[in-house]
């Protein structure tokens, strides 16, 4: 069974005349890194939000391991799929960086000692230790992005959707992030990368899906080390 299955999915925003997504048919495996690329306004973020149930498809079906996403609560989906928003400001709400990273774990009933251990690891790994007690919205864009990514990856969900994860990151931190994502992919946690950053995508993705005006116009699998096969 595929991890995510989208069948004839359509989506349109109430105040826009054109469809944001049109006839999307897609099967995504759990143990792979799938990238979604495309120009601005092509529907990449909308597709990510439809996959995770933040937006409900106006037509067609979205199944998460055979179960309709529309019949699941956001919390049920969130326990299985982590989601990093395109804009970190939308997902940061705690009073300190440490609290932000540990929020999901605390609320899912993790042992306090284990929460502390995981939070400490993430603070160190994402080079946020000095900001442990800082209000997240006061950080720079790149730092906020790192907090947002850390607060999602810390939960060890079986799958992650990252919407433009490299925005605001410098080359060094991009490399660190790529290494971490490759590491978690190697232990069977799949992901969807929504990105403009072709260098990052080519470095990581096993499969690249190209969107244009809400339609899939390309779907290629990695062939060897250097290219993709359509």
């Amino acid at each position: 069974m595929h991890f995510l299955t989208l069948t004839q999915v359509n989506f349109h925003y109430p105040k826009l005349s054109r469809m944001a997504l049109e006839n999307i048919n897609l099967e995504i495996e759990q143990k792979s890194i799938t990238a979604i690329i495309g120009p601005n306004g092509s529907g990449k973020t909308t597709l990510g939000k439809v996959m995770i149930g933040i937006l409900q498809a106006t037509g067609g079906k979205v199944l998460l391991q055979g179960e309709p996403v529309s019949e699941m609560s956001l919390a049920q989906i969130g326990r299985r799929i982590g989601y990093v928003f395109q804009n970190p400001d939308l997902q940061l709400f705690c009073a300190t960086v440490a609290e932000e990273i540990g929020f999901g774990l605390v609320n899912q009933g993790w042992e306090p000692a284990r929460v502390k251990e995981k939070v400490d690891f993430c603070l160190e790994f994402f080079q946020l230790a000095e900001y442990r007690h800082v209000f997240p919205l006061l950080l720079s864009q790149g730092e906020k992005q790192r907090v947002a990514i850390a607060s999602v990856l810390v939960a060890e969900n079986e799958f992650v959707i990252l919407d433009e994860p490299t925005i605001g990151l410098d080359a060094y931190r991009k490399k660190i992030l790529a290494g971490y994502l490759r590491k978690i992919a190697s232990i069977g946690r799949g992901m969807v990368l929504i990105s403009h950053d072709m260098g990052f995508v080519e470095h990581l993705a096993d499969r690249v899906i190209q969107l244009e005006k809400g339609r899939i116009v390309g779907d290629s699998e990695r062939k060897g080390r250097n290219g993709y096969d359509t």
């Binding site: 995770i52 933040i54 609560s73 956001l74 919390a75 049920q76 989906i77 969130g78 326990r79 982590g82 989601y83 928003f85 939308l90 997902q91 940061l92 709400f93 929020f103 999901g104 609320n107 899912q108 607060s151 939960a155």
Partner: peptide, 15 residues
């Protein structure tokens, strides 16, 4: 609304 969505996506069943 965004905050509530973000909280739920971290696995908290608000209901």
């Amino acid at each position: 609304v965004n905050v509530v969505t973000a909280i739920q996506l971290r696995g908290v069943e608000l209901k």
